[in-house]
Structures are given as C-alpha cells and as structure tokens.
C-alpha cells in the first residue's frame, strides 16, 4: 500500500514554519489555467505541469497557480490568464510548454507581458 508518510509531511511543515500561506491573499501574481474539456483535450494539463515544475524549481514564493473552467474560446486552447499586481490581466492562447515557460519567465516573474502570445490585453477577467 503506497501512502504518504506523515514524517515527510511534518518535515515540510517544519521547513515552511514562519512562511506565509499565499492563498490568504498575499500573492504578487496569479496564474489561472483554463481546464474545461476543451482545454484538457488540447493540453492544459501539460501547461499546468510546466507551471508547477517552474514554480518548484524557481522556488518562487509569491505566485499562486489555480485552474478554472472553459472560457468560451475552445478553439484557442490551451489558455491561461496571468494576473500580476499592478498590471492588467492577460489571457494567453494556443499554449505549449515552450510558450508557457517564456510567459512564466517574462511576465509572471519579470512583469513584462508577452504580447505575441496574448489574445488581447487590457480588459480580461478570470472565469
């Protein structure tokens, strides 16, 4: 029976002592991957995995990752919406691993939106 070991969880808990839980609203950037049927079929899980790995490797402590449903633009999936503090949210379309990494580096971390992969800029909301 494979099961998580309590001591592993306790070790993580100890190592994070004193850090803030980002879900409590103290994040600088939020990335939402659109995970409708359309998104999943087009590769949204790969996008999510790329971001989870990038956040883990970079050890970023001010970015939260979340998922949402179909945004109604199924033909342009996989999509994600990036919200960085002080900037307008940007919706990115036709994503793959490479584009996701570029957006992560330049927009999520660097604060500079990647216009070439954005569907539009200035009036986006998260669904």
């Amino acid at each position: 029976m494979a099961k998580l070991k309590i001591e592993d969880l306790r070790r993580i808990k100890e190592s994070k002592k004193g850090t803030v839980n980002l879900r409590e609203g103290v994040y600088r950037a939020k990335v939402t991957v659109h995970m409708g049927t359309c998104g999943i079929a087009a590769g949204a899980r790969t996008v999510m995995n790329t971001l989870m790995t990038a956040i883990g490797e970079k050890k970023t402590d001010d970015v939260i990752l979340t998922s949402s449903g179909c945004a109604g633009l199924c033909s342009q999936e996989p999509m994600m919406t990036v919200e960085v503090e002080g900037l307008s949210p940007v919706k990115y379309v036709y994503l793959d691993e490479e584009k996701t990494m570029k957006i992560f580096r330049e927009h999520v971390i660097g604060g500079k939106p990647v216009a070439e992969y954005a569907i539009t800029m200035g009036s986006e909301t998260t669904y």
């Binding site: 993580i12 808990k13 839980n21 883990g56 990752l65």
Partner: peptide
Amino acid sequence: TELDGIDIADPEVLALI
C-alpha cells in the same frame, strides 16, 4: 491536518503526492 496551515499546493507536497 498534518500540514497545519501550509498550502497543500506547495511544490514539495505535490512532489510527495
């Protein structure tokens, strides 16, 4: 319960899973 407030979506926790 074990994490006691630490985000379950923490990369280290997700890696364990």
